[in-house]
Design a protein around this nucleic acid. Structure first.
Lengths: 224, 224, 224, 224
DNA sequence: AATGAATGAGCGTTCATTCAT
DNA sequence: TATGAATGAACGCTCATTCAT
């Protein structure tokens, strides 16, 4: 998992002491969220984890949702920062950058934090509008770079098709999360799955032009 | 989402009355799980939903986990039943069956129940060993048919590689869940994403043989 | 203060055990309300007072308001019962019954419970619609008998004027509450104030006809 | 409701800034007290209402009771000031002044602030010695003028009887508070109730002499 | 098989108060 | 004079669980 980006909670807050307390709370909040899941995510557990009083945690994050949102923001902002860094890598071809993003994302899925955090986030997004909005924002940023590179790899694709292919590739990678994390059934196979992903997605990005996506199935050779 | 298979809870119970009460409870439990998520899944809400007393729900499912497990079992067993039905479709080529499974799974992702249930299940599986085991069992069954068909489509693949490709395809489809459910950002694009999936996964199944997966990256043409 | 009428909470509830627990809770609730006032009226204090668990009190009265309303109902219903009893006293003239109600109400003001309960109720009624409605209902019943007797004493009064005189007399008596309770400044003067009330209100009931209330001030002799 | 008299909190404080801050706080405190009642009267709500920090409010009024008492003082002192003004009205007969006080008090009962503040004060006085003392002080001043005028209207009354009649009249008027405020059941009837009060209380003041209060009931004509 | 009663724990939240700055 | 930080207590409420009937 990426490092937390704690700059948002720093903004708009007064003393250095308050800022440092807030970042301590957010780190503890993430730990509790990872360890216990959203269902048992509580202000009390977070306070105990960072040895602060419940009152103080409530002072900085008045409601449970405030705390949850602050933590989710910090995590997702960390990812957004990383995506932007990748785009800056110079001297690489579009296909190389494309594969490099795939490597980065797939390898991240193998970390404990990521393999727990994101399924919780997806579940949360079904019942929490704020989490949904932040999740969408992050994935849009994550796809933006993929989509740009797909355009470079396959200039014939129009914008809509580039987007669709980007969504397909991004979602497909995310789908591995519940299966390749530490202790999961396919943990050991993550490198090979990453190879398959690189191969399959690169082929898709290069070849998809030849077929109009809407009519794609007609071109499939299904003969037995 | 598939229909619940309520047969397991029927087993081992005496009267028809008890059996029907259990199935009423499980249906209500699924509704609450879908509506509120695991975090607010409670015996009380389930009892209220099906107009039974808390005591009675506790009588049939003594603990919260018993109820949760019963409900998860019923849902996942419903999926397993469906997978087995597909395999029976005669007169279709392997590739046609393969695409038909892809269609079935992808279209199911568009239902409200599925788009909520499975992310909750993935999150749950990180903190609940029972849910993890049941989830693995179900996905194994789901992949079994895919893997068999991959073998038929591409007989050159050894068992390990067939499995890996099957995991990749299955996981990739699951990954669309948080993005294509009702009200989600890419809800409308589900048909096109399904086309891309059919095209991409069929190509993968056919072509992956030519490359040894472990060394697959060397064959990638990454020149700019 | 009148005895509690606990029949309403008895209705609609299941076991004898539950009924007796409810009445124990209501008695304790009234004691806490009297001792601490609404501002410090809490489920916890009530539970402690009657040696029940907080959980059990919450079981019978799920919310603080439910408990408050149950207690207020029981108290006010006790008053309504008493008013109805008075009306049944046979063999008394209208004026005698009228004075007897005044005596009853004024003497009740001298009890500790009444002198605390009603000011709390008045305060409550400004912020709690339920309390307001119950209070109005009780005072309507209290006035009903007064108004009937005023009509008997002074048949020339029309309905509106009888009502107004009834409201004036009832409100005037209530106004003594904060001043004549135990420990209050005019506690010792309650008998004399009751005499004044009987004298003044009886004169009002008899004489008010002669003046149209709307034009009453013109008849006042204000010369110095 | 009368205007606040904020002079007491001005005393004993150093800078003009501190004085103005205190008066801002007291105004906000009264607003919160009126809107929410004593039960939900809190330093936090007062601070939020006047956009000051909790710390600052606590600086000026270290405890919740300090703030409450400061606010009660300011309100009651405002009433005392008004009563003294009335007494100064020259050129009026005693009976005219008497009726004018009745008018003033009764019309004040029709304001939102008064109809809420005083029931809260009465309730408070049962559990708060300071509020009781301040309330008594205010009512003594309110009655003082009434009692003086009763003596002028009816010189035959001795001091004790004048006081009793004054208490009766004052308490009777206060008793209308819960019934004639804005939104209350008899709001519209306040003018007529005021007429009845003027008529009834003036008659009482004039005629009470003829009967010894202690033996007053014997003179009542109760025949049917 | 079903229900109501009861308990005790945990949680989110509000709050009065204290303190350092 | 003013403010933010911090604490600890209390409260309303929900809940899982147990038990007697």
């Amino acid at each position: 998992m990426r490092d937390l980006n704690l700059s948002p909670p720093l903004d708009g807050h007064k003393s250095a002491k308050g800022r440092s307390t807030k970042s301590i709370i957010l780190k503890a909040a993430l730990e509790i969220f990872i360890e216990h899941g959203y269902g048992e995510f509580s202000i009390q557990k977070v306070a105990a984890r960072c040895s602060l009083s419940r009152g103080n945690v409530s002072y900085h994050y008045p409601t449970r949702d405030d705390l949850l949102h602050g933590m989710v923001d910090a995590v997702l902002q960390g990812y957004i920062d990383d995506f932007d860094d990748i785009a800056k890598d110079a001297g690489l071809s579009a296909a190389e950058k494309f594969v490099s993003i795939i490597d980065m994302i797939m390898s991240d899925l193998g970390t404990k934090e990521t393999s727990i955090f994101f399924p919780e986030l997806w579940a949360l997004s079904n019942h929490n509008a704020y989490a949904l909005a932040e999740m969408n924002k992050m994935y849009q940023r994550a796809r933006a770079h993929l989509i740009e590179l797909i355009g470079a790899i396959n200039p014939a694709l129009n914008k809509t098709d580039r987007e669709l292919v980007g969504v397909f590739i991004s979602a497909s990678m995310e789908g591995h999360t519940p299966f390749v994390g530490p202790g999961k059934e396919w943990e050991k196979s993550l490198p090979k799955l990453t190879n398959i992903a690189a191969y399959s997605f690169l082929h898709l990005a290069k070849s998809v032009t030849k077929n109009d996506i809407a009519a794609m199935r007609k071109g499939l050779k299904l003969a037995s």
